[in-house]
């Protein structure tokens, strides 16, 4: 392939890159071939390889930015011919420079935030009539949920206290009958102790639920809500 065709093909293969990038690259290779003393009709393939390879290496170098902007497809051409060493170098480069170009990108994106905020505010105003009933419904659901939780807690508490009370009473009763019916009384004492134990266990479980699990659950819910809000905020800015 002669020089003229090579440059033409390369320019064509780089279509879709930002115009500045394309011009820069084409000028570099024009310069390069001039400095290498290659005339317009001379074959450049032995020096530079195919235009496809060269274009792939240029696109590879820009891949980081392209990927983030999501404008260009990376696989519009074959990259298989690029040498392994070259790929390794590019990969390292990409990794090394990712941080800095990432920072560049975020500052670049801030230009859009003004319009986005206006749109979000507009959305908020328009959604107002829908939002109020939804907020009321959410509040009602939350109240019902809270009531249910309180009811369950109270039930457990009552059950535990009652178990302990019943156990103690029957223990006392059994002790008074120990002389009269030793076997039955012993059996009753055992059962009473069992019930007391169960009651204590229930109370402890309840204490654990109220003081450990419930706060943890609430914290989890709060975190979830705030993370959702934060993500929404991040999208806006």
């Amino acid at each position: 392939m002669n020089r003229k065709d090579f440059i033409g093909k390369l320019s064509m293969l780089l279509a879709g890159l930002p115009e500045g990038e394309r011009r820069e690259a084409v000028q570099y290779y024009e310069d390069y071939l001039s400095d290498a003393g290659v005339g317009p009709e001379e074959d450049v393939q032995p020096i530079l390889g195919t235009p496809e390879e060269v274009a792939a290496s240029i696109r590879d170098g820009l891949k980081d930015e392209e990927g983030r902007q999501g404008v260009f497809s990376e696989r519009g051409f074959s990259q298989a011919d690029t040498g392994a060493k070259h790929e390794m170098i590019q990969e390292d480069l990409n990794r090394r420079y990712r941080d800095r170009s990432g920072a560049d990108k975020t500052t670049g994106k801030k230009g859009m935030s003004g319009g986005m905020i206006v749109l979000l505010v507009l959305l908020g105003i328009l959604a107002f009539p829908v939002l109020i009933p939804m907020a009321v419904a959410a509040l009602v659901i939350a109240a019902v949920f809270l009531a249910a939780v309180v009811a369950v807690v109270v039930c457990f508490l009552l059950a535990g206290v009652l178990c302990v009370a019943v156990g103690v009473i029957s223990l006392i009763a059994a002790c008074t009958k120990l002389a009269l019916y030793p076997a039955g009384a012993l059996f009753l004492i055992g059962a009473s102790l069992l019930i007391i134990g169960l009651g204590i266990l229930l109370t402890m479980l309840l204490a654990w639920v109220t003081f450990k699990a419930f706060p943890a659950f609430m914290r989890g819910t709060v975190n979830l809500c705030s993370s959702l809000l934060r993500r929404k905020g991040g999208r806006a800015s």
């Binding site: 690259a25 390879e53 290496s57 240029i58 040498g83 070259h86 170098i89």
Partner: peptide
Amino acid sequence: DLSESTLYPVLRR
């Protein structure tokens, strides 16, 4: 040892 077209992306970066 590198090909003559390896350097452009490096220079550009």
